[in-house]
Design a protein around this nucleic acid. Structure first.
Lengths: 136, 136
DNA sequence: CTAGAATCTAGAGTGCGATCTAGGTCAAGC
DNA sequence: GCTTGACCTAGATCGCACTCTAGATTCTAG
């Protein structure tokens, strides 16, 4: 493939499967229509890969496809809506901070459990009756 | 309901729906068989609620139902497998730490994007061509 | 006694995000 | 030219974790 990247190249570069890439296209998650060769194959460029890498970050951090779609749509509709894009990203940033906080809180509780179990296992492996919660 | 809690009570106390509680029971996620009234209604106790609250924490922090099931099974099968329970929890703790790290990494990237957008929006609202990535 | 709310079971349906299938078409190497 | 592998479309299927439906039963308040 001369200048561009095949769907397989992009799959390798982004970690997404070819099926996922076609799915993304159907869902309008790209910033532009992906052009085709005479034979009908998709031709991507590096910029598409970079956008997908950002998508990966947004997805990993919990942004649903639907929101990604809204963001892509804003970008596609050209300059002039930067405030909206900013608002969307800020909202997501806040959501991520909250998710980290929730995970950190859960982590503490889980770690406490681990400490208790560790203590229990270390002293007296010949264990007595002991359950995390129900005494029944 | 005399001494125990109804399914509705438990739903209120845990935030889980009654459907979810019946589902949990089918999936063997409880630490004991939940007893019934003469008429067939489930009778829970406080200990069950506390276990469910721990389950919520484990679930929120990304533990799949299947793993929760394994843990519940270990506890149900009585004392003697504390090392296994500990290993399971430690593994999950590690997974949570990694998840937090991944989120933190994504957050940084997203925050950078936000900063760029903010700068762009502040200076010159009459925007020029500007997209997050693809120049095409 | 009766009406209404809560509960019961078994099983179907939902939403998300892919992921795979079937039945082809296209292109590069021998 | 022909094989082989990558690619195409449309649509079916999957996994997870619920969530809801239907139709029956049980408990509670008036």
């Amino acid at each position: 493939m001369k200048g561009g990247l095949s769907i397989g190249d992009v799959a390798k570069a982004t970690g997404l499967g070819v099926h996922a890439l076609r799915f993304f296209e159907r869902e309008q998650l790209f910033l532009r229509p992906i052009p085709r060769t005479a034979g009908g194959r998709r031709v991507y460029e590096q910029a598409d890969v970079e956008w997908l890498l950002l998508c990966n970050r947004l997805r990993e951090s919990g942004m649903p496809i639907a929101t990604l779609k809204r963001f892509a749509k804003l970008v596609r509709s050209g300059p002039g809506n930067e405030e909206e894009r900013l608002a969307l990203l800020e909202e997501h940033e806040q959501a991520v901070r909250e998710k980290i906080a929730a995970l950190t809180a859960s982590l503490e509780i889980i770690h406490d459990k681990v400490v208790i179990y560790r203590k229990h296992v270390e002293e007296g492996t010949a264990a007595g009756v002991w359950a995390p919660t129900p005494s029944a």
